[in-house]
Design a binder for these strands. Structure first.
Length: 347
DNA sequence: GTCCAATGGGGAC
DNA sequence: TCCCCCTTGGACA
């Protein structure tokens, strides 16, 4: 699931291809029919992300709030301009990239225009689908068609918009682009007051605010509790966007025992956490992957980008030797989630 | 086919 | 602290 970096990428995608457009809103699955009818035909004004929450503001101060939870994902298709780095996003999208012809997408910084069946620059119709959200290896929906039968896929895009496939909670459609949402934990209409109430509950997100005041808010909220730091880092009211992967990796990078009571963490250590999150989140948004090993040689780095297994210090490495000291990585439950850590490096 | 895991979070107790 | 919701893919029978 998408941790904070994915949601920022999604908001960017909306900003690039939907903001300023009139949007047809529907709920093919039928579970957001009433909300869709309120938003249908309105112009999208703003797309923004705070941590794992995304907010879309439409005309007349109608807001749509989306939280992907563990399973949620957005599929984008049509005449979508995809930032070169966004084209390499997690999960399904990563594989999309592998299959596409624009293999150099990671390196470039320029946007590419992807127009199915017409003048797609260096890609074909395959590349005009982008998914961001929960990792899903096999294809379903638009992508499933691509994987199974290329011809069928091409036809489905040729007849824009493609038919929604599977449980699409909400579809946002402009004349040239479409976004399908599946499996969100939250997809609801909200008033400005409702949105503000949600925002007020959230800790700072360094993609939105790297000020000293933001850092201080984090430190103040984190340091006043005796809960384990491994729990506190995942508390979205303390700091926004950190999920289970980043929690484990940040604790390892800091060399801190996850059980340490937060109030015993020093000021310097909190500062280091903040600085590291600023950095890791920026990298994650840029690469579309939770790359937490930043001391790799360029060749190793490429390999790590390609392989999900080589991206992390400790996450999902239980029983394997620590990359730093050789001690076996352990796994335990903390805050109802699996926590991976090195008992030697994180004493 | 059936079962389980998965990068979350909220509510009941 | 437990339980439930959301959805999908993969492992296994």
């Amino acid at each position: 699931m998408p941790e904070g970096h994915s949601v920022h990428r999604i908001a960017r995608q909306f900003d690039r291809n939907f903001v300023g457009h009139l949007v047809c809103v529907s709920s093919p699955q039928g579970r957001f029919t009433e909300g869709a009818s309120v938003l249908n035909g309105l112009r999208l004004v703003t797309a923004m992300a705070i941590g794992k929450q995304m907010f879309l503001r439409f005309e007349n101060d109608h807001w749509l709030r989306v939280h992907l939870g563990i399973y949620g994902a957005w599929d984008f298709a049509g005449d979508i301009s995809v930032d070169a780095t966004i084209a390499s996003a997690d999960g399904r999208m990563g594989q999309t990239n592998q299959r596409g012809t624009s293999g150099g997408a990671l390196a470039g910084g320029s946007a590419q225009r992807l127009v199915p069946g017409t003048d797609a620059a260096d890609g074909d119709a395959e590349d005009s689908v982008a998914s961001i959200g929960a990792p899903r290896r096999a294809r379903h929906g638009l992508s499933a068609v691509r994987m199974a039968e290329h011809d069928t896929f091409s036809r489905s895009l040729a007849a824009f918009p493609p038919d929604p496939i599977g449980a699409v909670r909400v579809r946002l459609l402009t004349e040239t682009a479409v976004a399908d949402l599946r499996g969100p934990t939250v997809c609801e209409l909200a008033t400005p007051e409702g949105i503000q109430a949600v925002i007020d509950r959230l800790g700072p997100d360094p993609q939105n605010d790297t000020s000293e005041r933001a850092e201080q808010t984090f430190v103040d909220r984190a340091s006043r509790t005796a809960r384990p730091i491994g729990v506190v880092l995942m508390d979205q009211s303390v700091i926004s966007g950190i999920g289970n992967v980043y929690r484990a990796e940040m604790l390892f990078r800091a060399g801190i025992n996850p059980h340490t009571p937060a109030k015993k963490i020093t000021r310097e250590q909190f500062h280091a956490f903040w600085v590291d999150w600023v950095y890791l989140l920026e990298v994650g948004v840029r690469l579309g992957q939770m790359m937490t090993m930043d001391n790799l040689a360029p060749t190793d780095y490429t390999a790590a980008m390609a392989s999900r297994d080589d991206r992390h210090w400790v996450y999902k490495r239980e029983g394997l030797p620590c990359r730093r000291c050789g001690t076996n990585i352990v796994v335990e439950e903390m805050a109802a989630r699996k926590l991976y850590w090195c008992p030697q490096c994180q004493r």
